[in-house]
Design a protein around this nucleic acid. Structure first.
Length: 355
DNA sequence: GACGCGTGGCT
DNA sequence: TAGCCAAGCGT
C-alpha cells in the first residue's frame, strides 16, 4: 500500500474539492475544457490585482466585448482605454495593460509568451501574474502566490513569522505542495479556498477540504495566521477642486501619467497637501458646495472642497484641458473621486433650482 | 524592503 | 463605524 506524502495529499484533497466546487467565473474555461485563452486569462489577472471578483465582473465583460483580442486592445486609443478603466482603480494597471498589449502585438507576433520568464518581462506583469498566466493559460507548473495562497499556506504550516518577512518561507512551502500536473487548477483551487473557506476573518474550518492537513486548525485561533506587521496610520488631507462651467460644458484636465490617478481626466484641483487657500484656475465668482467630498485612498484620506462657477464665452483657463459637455459627463471616464465631485455639484444645482 | 498607488464591501 | 481587506506592480 502506497503512503501519500503530506504535500501530495494536500494537492489531491484540494483538487478533488475543486472538481466539485470550483467557482464558475467569466474568465474561466468551462469545466472539462482546457481551452484557456491567454488573452482572457491575462486580462482577468490584471483586473483582479488587489481587486475583488465582484468589482471586476462588469469591467471584464465590457473590455472583452469591446476588445475581443489582444490585437484589438493594442490598437485602441489611450484615452478610450483609460476611460473604460475609470472607477476600477490603480490606474497604472490600465497604462501598463495597453503597453503590454502593444508589446505582445509588436514584439511577440501577437502571441503571448508561454513561459513564466517571458511573461514576467511584460509591462504590468509581476511574479504573481506571470506564474498565474503560465499555469492557467499554458498548463505549466508555476508557483502562484497571491494573498489567498499566502494565507492558506501560512495556516497549513502554521507559519508564525510575520509578513512580509515570511514571504520566502511561504513561497517555499507553496512550492512544496504545488503539483506537476494541473498546476493551473491547483492555483485557482487555492484562491477559491482562500476566497470562500479559508477567509481572512472567520474561516469556515468545519467544511474545509484541507482540515485534516492543516496545522493552524489545531491551534486556538487559526485566523491569527498569517501574522502581519502593524500598519501605519493613514493621514488625512484636504484638497480643492474647481468646476468651471461655460455654456453647458465643464473644463476637464488630464492628470500627469505618473502619480495619483495618473493619466485620468479630472477636474482641475490643488495639490493635496495642506495649502490653506489655493488659487483657482480662473478668476470668477466662486461658490463652494456645503459638504466636502470625502474619499479614502490607499495611503491617505481626503476631504475635497469643491468650488463651482460660470464663466463667459471668452474665458479659458491657462493650463491645458478641454471643454466637456456636461450632459455627457458620464462618458468622460472620471475616476471615482471626481465623479462624486461632479455629482455633488449637480445635486447642489438641483437643490438651488427648487429654492 | 518600503512606499505609492483606488475603490467598494464587510464587520 | 472606522478599519480591514482584496487574484500586486513599479520604483
Amino acid at each position: 500500500m502506497r503512503v501519500e506524502g503530506r504535500a501530495t495529499k494536500i494537492a489531491s484533497d484540494l483538487l478533488a474539492h475543486y472538481d466539485v466546487h470550483a467557482r464558475r467565473l467569466p474568465w474561466r474555461a468551462p469545466p472539462g475544457s482546457n481551452a484557456a485563452d491567454p488573452y482572457r486569462v491575462w486580462l482577468s489577472e490584471v483586473m483582479l490585482q488587489q481587486t475583488t471578483v465582484a468589482a471586476v465582473g462588469p469591467y471584464y465583460a465590457k473590455f472583452l466585448a469591446r476588445w475581443p483580442t489582444v490585437a484589438d486592445l493594442a490598437a485602441s486609443a489611450d484615452a478610450d482605454l483609460m476611460a473604460a478603466w475609470a472607477g476600477l482603480g490603480y490606474y497604472a494597471r490600465a497604462r501598463n495593460l495597453l503597453a503590454c498589449a502593444r508589446a505582445v502585438a509588436q514584439d511577440h507576433g501577437g502571441v503571448f509568451p508561454d513561459t513564466e520568464d517571458g511573461l514576467r518581462a511584460l509591462p504590468g506583469v509581476g511574479a504573481y501574474t506571470a506564474a498565474a498566466v503560465a499555469a492557467i493559460a499554458f498548463g505549466q507548473r508555476a508557483v502562484v502566490v497571491d494573498a489567498n495562497v499566502e494565507r492558506v499556506v501560512a495556516r497549513l504550516f502554521a507559519i508564525a513569522t510575520p509578513l512580509p518577512a515570511a514571504r520566502p518561507v511561504i513561497r517555499a512551502a507553496a512550492d512544496s505542495i504545488t503539483p506537476d500536473a494541473r498546476a493551473g487548477d491547483f492555483a485557482q483551487a487555492m484562491m477559491d479556498l482562500g476566497a470562500t473557506i479559508c477567509t481572512s476573518r472567520n474561516p469556515a474550518c468545519g467544511i474545509c477540504p484541507l482540515r485534516q492537513d492543516c496545522a493552524a486548525v489545531l491551534t486556538a485561533d487559526p485566523a491569527a495566521y498569517p501574522v502581519k506587521a502593524a500598519k501605519k496610520a493613514r493621514p488625512h488631507r484636504t484638497g480643492h477642486g474647481w468646476w468651471i462651467e461655460r455654456d453647458g460644458h465643464v473644463w476637464l484636465v488630464r492628470r500627469p501619467d505618473k502619480g495619483l490617478l495618473g493619466g485620468m481626466r479630472a477636474l482641475p484641483s490643488s495639490d493635496w497637501g495642506d495649502a490653506p487657500d489655493p488659487t483657482p484656475p480662473v478668476a470668477a465668482r466662486w461658490t463652494t458646495i456645503e459638504t466636502d467630498v470625502a474619499h479614502v485612498f490607499t495611503h491617505f484620506s481626503l476631504a475635497l472642497r469643491v468650488h463651482h462657477a460660470h464663466v463667459g464665452p471668452d474665458v479659458t483657463p491657462e493650463d491645458e484641458g478641454e471643454w466637456w459637455p456636461i450632459d455627457r459627463i458620464g462618458e468622460a471616464g472620471l475616476p471615482t473621486l471626481f465623479a462624486r465631485a461632479a455629482d455633488a455639484v449637480r445635486k447642489e444645482r438641483q437643490a438651488d433650482a427648487r429654492n
